[in-house]
Every structure is written in C-alpha cells, then in structure tokens.
C-alpha cells in the first residue's frame, strides 16, 4: 500500500486549497441542521421524540450519516477525474500498488467527513433549540458516533470507488449518485421516526445501512448511558456496518488491483 500517504496528502491539499470546495463542504452541514431543524421542528409535538429533547438532537445522527453518505458517494468522481485529466497514467507507471490510488481517495473522504462532522456538531450545539447532550453522555458514546460515521464513510466511498474503477464518463457516475441518494435517504430512519413512515418503507428502512448508523448515533445522543439491551442494538447495528464495510473494502482492493486502468 505504498503511495497511499503521498496521494492522500495530495487530495487533502487540493481540498483545503480550493476555497469554494472547502467552504461549501463546511457550510453544507449548517444548512442541513438549520433547515431540517426548523422545517421539521413541529415533529417534536408528535411524540416521536423523548420529552425534554429537541428535534435537532433527534435528527443529528441522521444528518451526520447523510453527510458521510453524500461526501462518500462523490469519491468515485475523483478517480474518474484523475483518469480523464492524466495523473492516472503517472500513478500506473509508478512503483505504487494499484489499490493505493483508490484507498488514498477513500481515506481522504473519511478525513473530510470527520472535519465536516465536527463542524456539524458545533453548528447543532450553537443553534437555538439545538443539540442537547444528555447529562451522562460518556466517552463510549463518542466512540459509537465516530465508529458509525467512519464505517458509513468507508461503505459508501468504497462502493462508489468500485463503480468508478473502470468508468470514463463523469455523467454516468453522477447519474448513479442522483438515482440512489434519495432512496437511500428517505427509505431510512435518518430523518423521520419509523412511526411516520408508510409501513413498507419502514420495512425497507430496517435493512438500510443509513438507518443503522443514524439509529446508533441517535440512541447515544438521546439517551446517554444505555441499558444492556440498548447496547445490544448498538452492537448489532455497528456490527452489521462493520461487516458491510469489510466486504466493500475487500471488493475495492481486489477490483483496484485487477481492473484499474487509464
């Protein structure tokens, strides 16, 4: 995996050096929180949200997951850009493993998502009627949040990298992203409590990794210290995410080593 670090640094450099790209990436989470928070704040009257909590507290897990989903999905486009603009030819001629070309992009996406997540949490905290951590919020809860975000980023950035590995057309991947982002978002527990969904969507949402991540974060943010059965659910969700992530990473490795070309 030589080459991952230099390529990762290149990617991050291009990110923080492009002011528009950098700031939109940072401001976008603010919009999510502010717009969804106010648009749907009346949901708290419907009883889906525990007493004393706020809708933003309820939804922050969903927004964090969606940020990871959206940023992750665009990882593939960077691979196509490298192919169209020439650098891919240089990478393939260099003594670095093929997979490092792809994994550097994936790691870069994870780092960018983590930065966005921190900003997003700060935004949620400063908004009026915003995020309220429970009094007994602990380090274990923080770890759950980080694990959920990292695994979600890993799953979707790997998935869309695999799609991009042999692709030359930018429009194809944009099309795929546009096709799947709304179903992934709305057929999940990211935004709404299951009680508000049509039953069949609720059933589908159960198997959506976006739900697993959103629900894990939601549970620790709303409850703080968890009961044994709540921990059980968290391990189930995170375990499923981890399995899926491992599968995606393995697939990405094999596909990148074998199939990447210019």
């Amino acid at each position: 995996m030589s080459g991952v670090f230099p390529l990762l640094m290149r990617d991050l450099k291009k990110w923080y050096r492009n002011p528009v790209f950098f700031f939109t990436g940072l401001i976008q989470p603010f919009f999510w929180i502010a717009l969804f928070g106010s648009a749907l704040s009346n949901l708290s009257h419907l009883g889906a949200i525990p007493q004393g909590s706020t809708y933003i507290t309820y939804i922050v897990g969903g927004v964090l997951t969606i940020t990871a989903l959206f940023t992750g999905m665009f990882t593939g486009t960077n691979i196509i850009f490298d192919r169209r603009l020439g650098p891919m030819g240089r990478f393939l001629a260099s003594p670095i493993s093929r997979s490092s070309i792809v994994f550097s992009r994936i790691f870069s996406a994870i780092i960018r998502i983590m930065v966005q997540s921190v900003i997003l949490i700060i935004a949620a905290l400063v908004l009026p009627n915003g995020l309220k951590f429970p009094g007994d919020f602990s380090l274990a809860d923080v770890l759950v949040i980080i694990t959920a975000i990292v695994l979600t980023s890993l799953i979707f950035s790997s998935m869309f990298s695999v799609i991009a590995i042999r692709m030359r057309e930018m429009n194809t991947i944009f099309g795929i992203v546009n096709l799947v982002n709304l179903p992934l978002l709305f057929m999940s527990y990211a935004m709404f409590p299951v009680g508000l969904m049509a039953p069949w969507i609720g059933d589908v949402a159960k198997y959506n990794p976006v739900s697993w991540s959103a629900e894990s974060i939601r549970l620790v943010v709303l409850q703080g210290s968890l009961t044994a059965s709540q921990w059980g659910s968290i391990f189930q969700w995170l375990g499923a995410l981890a399995l899926l992530a491992a599968g995606m990473v393995a697939l990405t490795y094999v596909m990148a080593e074998k199939e990447i070309r210019d």
Partner: peptide
Amino acid sequence: VPQDLTADEDL
C-alpha cells in the same frame, strides 16, 4: 514520459 500529459493541474 507518456504521450499524454500526466501532471496534476491543481498542483
């Protein structure tokens, strides 16, 4: 030194 240009334009 391939036929196509390979340098990253943003660097």
